[in-house]
Amino acid sequence: MSKILVTGATGNVGSHVVSQLAGAGLEVRAFARRPERVRAAVEVVQGDLYEPETLEPALKDVESVFLLWPGFTTGNAAEVVAAVARHARRVVYLSALGGDGAPSHYAEIEELIRRSGLGWTFLRPGGFAANTLGWAGQIRQGVVRWPYGEASRALIHERDIASVAVHVLTSAGHNGAAYALTGPEELTQAEQARVIGEATGRAVRWEEQPVEEARERLMAAWGEPAFVEGALTTWESFVTRPERATDTVERLLGRPALTFRQWAEDHAADFA
């Protein structure tokens, strides 16, 4: 099997993709802004997808690419996809649930890839369990104050996303597929906070935060009104229309998806 290029190689998902491919003895090249943060013993090329000229050297002798776009707008994604198409034969793109629905950068990049001539597979995960790391400071205090405690999602362990990516990159039969990936269970945000508390040995309670207060806090942190409103609208929607669990991870990997409790136990030190 020819070389596999992994972009976003130091991120929550990409780092696991690199380590799992390397652990299987496959030829891997990691593409990263900060090469020193690549943990596996693999070839590393320093670069940034926002600077497409840095991608060209990384694509030499590459057959397959794991593509993780680093932003929330398409930017120069057309140039990146074109560069990949000049060198590689197939791409596994980390998109998102709903990536083919309402207009978004995910949908736009999926369309760029469809038109590129590359063989492709889209991975469309739902909510990342790792997003709850944003509660770490509050977990330490024993109270999570956040809006929409009854919003229910089937959060997925980043290791499962990586395992699916590796499976798709190293086996046949996935060309043209779009896989909806979730964890195996649906939990409300309040339940997620409780499970994290149990995994870390703390009693953690939920305190409902008024939406307007949350909006002000998120604006101060993110500074992007459209992104803040999109996040709040999404959380609100999961109160009445929960994100449903899929069995895709189990079907592809032949084992159950990792539970949120397993994720919380794996990350207990991050909440210490």
Results as ranks from 00 to 15, higher is better:
residue 38 V to I: 12
residue 222 W to P: 12
residue 215 R to K: 13
residue 55 L to Y: 07
residue 198 E to P: 11
residue 93 Y to S: 06
residue 246 T to A: 01
residue 269 A to M: 14
residue 155 L to Q: 04
residue 25 G to A: 08
residue 8 G to K: 00
residue 74 T to C: 01
residue 97 L to M: 11
residue 153 R to N: 02
residue 177 A to D: 08
residue 112 L to W: 00
residue 177 A to Q: 13
residue 18 V to K: 07
residue 268 A to Q: 08
residue 191 E to L: 03
residue 89 R to I: 06
residue 218 L to Y: 10
residue 149 G to W: 04
residue 80 V to Q: 00
residue 90 R to H: 13
residue 170 T to V: 14
residue 97 L to D: 00
residue 51 E to A: 11
residue 236 E to L: 15
residue 65 V to I: 04
residue 145 R to A: 11
residue 31 F to E: 00
residue 93 Y to L: 02
residue 41 A to T: 02
residue 20 Q to V: 09
residue 60 K to Q: 14
residue 173 G to Y: 01
residue 53 E to I: 09
residue 52 P to A: 11
residue 136 A to Y: 06
residue 98 G to V: 05
residue 68 L to Y: 03
residue 241 R to Y: 09
residue 202 R to F: 07
residue 136 A to S: 14
residue 103 P to D: 05
residue 56 E to I: 15
residue 224 E to Y: 08
residue 92 V to H: 01
residue 198 E to Y: 06
residue 78 A to D: 15
residue 268 A to C: 04
residue 251 R to S: 07
residue 115 R to F: 08
residue 181 L to N: 08
residue 248 T to Y: 01
residue 90 R to M: 13
residue 150 E to G: 09
residue 217 R to A: 14
residue 240 T to H: 14
residue 160 D to N: 00
residue 271 F to Y: 13
residue 35 P to W: 08
residue 50 Y to G: 12
residue 168 V to K: 01
residue 8 G to R: 01
residue 123 L to Y: 01
residue 141 Q to W: 04
residue 229 E to V: 15
residue 37 R to C: 09
residue 248 T to S: 00
